[in-house]
């Protein structure tokens, strides 16, 4: 379970209107970007090796999406629905516990 956004992710949905009457009067937002799965932008995917992870959370700290969440056991997980594969997490990991792997799609 992604602990970053909890139920926000499952509740998020795509919004599209068929008739002008359905539009709000002003261009105000109606939902979160969480319905936009940016994971398909990815070429390389980060893979975490729990054995090497020291739970420093530097990867969590520097994720620009954010797509790295903290699991109940204290290790980190990656939400591949959002991860764009930038690789900052792997580059910053002090124990090299994260490797970027070419993704087959």
């Amino acid at each position: 379970m992604n602990t970053l956004f909890g139920e926000g992710k499952s509740k998020a949905k795509k919004i599209a209107f068929k008739s002008v009457e359905e539009y709000p009067e002003a261009p105000i937002s109606l939902g979160a970007t969480l319905s936009n799965f940016t994971g398909d932008w990815r070429t390389f995917m980060p893979v975490v090796d729990d054995a090497k992870c020291v739970k420093c959370y530097i990867c969590w700290k520097f994720c620009p999406e954010p797509a790295i969440f903290i699991r109940e056991d204290g290790y980190v997980g990656i939400d591949y629905d959002y991860c764009k594969g930038c690789g900052i997490c792997a580059n910053e990991c002090p124990t090299k516990a994260i490797t970027m792997v070419k993704e087959e799609k």
């Binding site: 599209a16 209107f17 002008v20 539009y23 009067e25 261009p27 105000i28 937002s29």
Partner: peptide
């Protein structure tokens, strides 16, 4: 919280112009 005036793509901008005219 709301965001006001974000990017309106060609799929939506048109309707907001019509709303102004209707008002």
């Amino acid at each position: 919280p709301i965001a006001v005036g974000a990017l309106g793509t060609p799929a939506d901008y048109y309707e907001f112009r019509y709303k102004i005219e209707k008002s």
